[in-house]
Nucleic acid binder design. Structure first.
Lengths: 246, 246
DNA sequence: CGTCCCCTTGAATGAAGTCAATACGCGTGG
DNA sequence: CCACGCGTATTGACTTCATTCAAGGGGACG
């Protein structure tokens, strides 16, 4: 079921019952399972579906000629992979599962049927697209201007907030199913640096992290350390001012 | 006139005469002029227009609490600033002019009229949106995995290619109206580092750069130095495979 | 029991940042 | 016309943060 997505879009606007049902129908699309590290889309592929992530984590990444890899973004349950990708002839990067992953493969026709008949959902998906772009810009900012500890702290603040709005946190804990190497690939650091930063954050009593579970012991402190401002996630019911038009 | 945008969209698909006329009408929107360094949108503003850049360069940027600034993306003539931004309640970053800038302020109603009546233009604008997102991911990759010389070389390759596809290059030269400090803000480096990298690229006979004009003396060499693969710009007539559906 | 992956730690190295001084080009106003 | 100021570019010396290299430890699993 697409409950994660529906819950997330609720941060943008109030969806009607019909809207909710229409979105639910997306997860009636062909489901596909991937194992950890399995490729979901490969650079050069022609995109044929919009992947709706129902369960598990995945990432976009690019391998460079010099052997380095950058994880450019993360997918968590409730995320959609590029509304309207099939407009592009081929993928310019790859997508891989980080954990076991379940996706619904939404076809072009199913998607178009949805947006033609549900203008409010269309708006909500636009919002989702704009937020994804905003997250990507924030990652650019992190890599450009934040030091190692700030980057990782920021990443953790973002992940916790994103998971919280799809109901995947428990108290001050959330899953974090990434190895230190993968955290490094996402934050432009080496495994060794990630490890040292994590030690520091633990010593400062900001976080605990073990067995792929993150506990945020001092969210305010972590936010301060990260210079984290959640405004870029646009979770404050952005859509309300558009209600009159719907 | 919106000739730059029209020319760019031509890399995606063949537009009909009616499509072209409809896009041209966008530049009949309220025009606005900005001077160098003037703010075009401010963090916290409610977006009310889609800015279509007709002339001059601008940038998105974010100021961090520690006083650092990251330029997250560049706008050159023919670029659109966030199709459908008015869905967001407020801007999470600012946009400033780098040079003197002319924009057309496209209102929500004018924009909606365009996409309702011109499905092929709608597709082309989706393509533009997806390419912008792709560029943002490439910047993330650059900042995460490329060293100083590679970042700046990559930036130059990208800028030249983008300008070329809107007709703003002359031979192997193009405008580059950014100070070394601004190049640094875009590439996550200090002015001093930018200066040293530029010396190196000049000594290697890859580029010349003076008076805000970039000359690429050895594009292949520069691409190699940058690990530049233009696939992420999707300029190879991506739209052709969709022709049957239009 | 051995292997593989992941995490941890120390020491040496290196890329980019910081600090600081100087030079250059250009427009303004005396 | 020249002096001045301002923004921009350049250069050298020093520092620092993160990387690299290398080694070892722990846990899961066949």
């Amino acid at each position: 079921m697409a409950t994660r997505l529906i819950r997330k879009l609720g941060y943008f606007t109030c969806l009607s019952t019909g809207d909710v049902q229409a979105i639910s129908r997306l997860s009636g699309s062909q489901l596909r399972l991937y194992r950890p590290r399995e490729l979901i889309m490969r650079e050069g592929d022609r995109p044929e579906f919009i992947n709706l992530f129902l369960d598990g984590w995945a990432c976009r990444f690019k391998d460079l000629e010099n052997g380095k890899r950058q994880i450019m973004s993360l997918f968590v349950p409730g995320d959609l992979c590029d509304v309207n990708v099939f407009i592009l002839k081929e993928m310019d990067h790859s997508i891989a599962a980080l954990t076991s992953v379940t996706v619904a493969e939404v076809s072009r026709s199913v998607f178009e049927e949805l947006i033609i008949n549900h203008p409010r959902v269309t708006q909500a998906l636009w919002w989702e697209t704009l937020v994804s772009a905003s997250i990507q810009r924030e990652w650019t900012t992190s890599l450009g201007q934040r030091d190692a500890a700030e980057r990782i702290s920021h990443l953790f603040c973002e992940i916790f907030t994103r998971l919280d709005c799809v109901g995947l946190t428990v108290g001050n804990t959330c899953p974090l199913p990434m190895s230190q190497a993968e955290i490094g690939e996402a934050s432009g650091l080496t495994t060794v640096s990630v490890n040292r930063v994590l030690q520091d954050l633990r010593k400062a009593n900001l976080i605990a992290l073990r067995q792929r579970t993150l506990t945020i012991l001092d969210f305010d402190g972590l936010k301060r350390r990260a210079m984290f401002n959640p405004n870029y996630l646009h979770l404050d019911r952005d859509g309300d001012h558009l209600a009159a038009n719907s």
